[in-house]
Amino acid sequence: MDSICMMRCEGKALLECLQYQDALIIYDTLYEKDKSNFTREDYINYIRCLRMCNRNEKALRICKDLYLRKELYENDKTFTHHNQLFAAILYDCYIANFDSWAIKDEDRFFSAVDTILNLVSQEESYSYESAVFRALEYLSKKVIKDAKRMYNYLNKLNPDKLSDTPPTYLDQKGKVIEVGGSKEKWKMYYNIITGDVPNIS
């Protein structure tokens, strides 16, 4: 077995043992040495390692590289399953921390939101729902609200498929904090929108 095949097997084994950092070192080397022979599995494994190691910007570049290699997926209907991973990376890169830069680059923010909505469905990925709510949150904080645009985003969610259960998390002091459930958020934004544009519905 040649050294490339051995490295590929070792990287996959490390990934399966959740040793992402060690696996990433191998996939980085493989990508530099043998990118042209990367299989679809190699790409997905590499992207997973990058994401688990918080290297989302590079993960997104590798995603784009894979999309350019159409011969690896164009005749496989199961490939859309991987869109969930790509949507999650896109969300982490350009939407999760939007407060820090979205005002400076609003177009990129909404481009990321819209790409996620085209990649996956509400049923397929939590990134879909999260992206819509981030867009609504951002639009609701603008001095001049664009209620029509807010309504268009709100309309991309099926409220019957949203959760009533409020998610919880621990703050820095270990206190359990409860935040509003998805359905509650939907109702809140609906009230904001219909309050601004009474005849919108």
Score class of each variant (00 low, 15 high):
157 L>N: 06
155 N>Q: 13
191 N>M: 06
131 A>Q: 12
168 T>V: 15
80 T>N: 03
157 L>P: 07
164 D>N: 15
106 E>C: 11
144 I>C: 10
47 I>K: 01
144 I>Y: 14
112 A>Q: 04
180 G>W: 02
107 D>T: 10
81 H>F: 13
123 E>N: 11
17 C>A: 09
95 I>Q: 02
168 T>Y: 04
154 L>Q: 03
137 E>T: 14
136 L>M: 13
157 L>V: 10
42 D>K: 06
146 D>R: 14
197 V>C: 11
105 D>L: 05
17 C>E: 10
199 N>M: 07
49 C>D: 02
77 K>S: 07
112 A>V: 09
21 Q>N: 08
175 K>E: 09
29 T>E: 12
171 D>A: 02
146 D>G: 09
28 D>C: 08
190 Y>G: 00
9 C>V: 09
114 D>Q: 12
83 N>R: 08
160 D>W: 13
38 F>G: 01
143 V>L: 14
54 N>R: 14
100 S>V: 11
169 Y>T: 02
125 S>F: 05
113 V>P: 03
129 E>A: 08
166 P>Q: 02
114 D>F: 13
130 S>F: 15
30 L>H: 06
136 L>R: 07
62 I>S: 05
154 L>A: 04
125 S>A: 09
45 N>C: 08
194 T>K: 10
153 Y>M: 09
73 Y>H: 04
9 C>L: 13
188 M>C: 01
45 N>E: 04
113 V>K: 02
185 K>Q: 08
50 L>K: 01
70 K>F: 05
176 V>G: 00
22 D>K: 07
14 L>P: 09
12 K>N: 07
104 K>V: 03
43 Y>W: 12
90 L>A: 00
171 D>C: 05
173 K>W: 12
50 L>M: 04
78 T>A: 04
135 A>S: 13
21 Q>R: 09
51 R>G: 04
132 V>A: 05
55 R>K: 14
20 Y>M: 01
17 C>S: 11
167 P>Y: 00
117 L>Q: 09
182 S>N: 11
160 D>V: 10
157 L>G: 06
181 G>A: 14
194 T>P: 11
62 I>E: 05
63 C>V: 15
152 N>I: 08
115 T>H: 13
23 A>L: 01
168 T>I: 14
34 D>R: 05
44 I>N: 01
68 L>I: 08
141 K>M: 15
122 Q>G: 06
39 T>V: 08
94 Y>H: 11
48 R>E: 03
92 D>Y: 05
134 R>F: 13
112 A>E: 03
148 K>S: 12
3 S>K: 14
188 M>A: 07
168 T>P: 04
76 D>G: 01
167 P>N: 05
103 I>T: 10
164 D>V: 11
31 Y>M: 07
176 V>Q: 05
6 M>E: 12
76 D>R: 07
173 K>G: 00
1 M>H: 09
131 A>T: 15
73 Y>C: 01
143 V>M: 11
192 I>W: 10
2 D>P: 12
166 P>W: 00
129 E>L: 11
179 V>D: 00
20 Y>D: 01
173 K>N: 10
74 E>Q: 12
197 V>T: 07
86 F>E: 03
88 A>G: 05
23 A>D: 02
99 D>Y: 15
92 D>G: 01
129 E>F: 02
140 S>A: 15
165 T>I: 15
100 S>Y: 13
98 F>S: 00
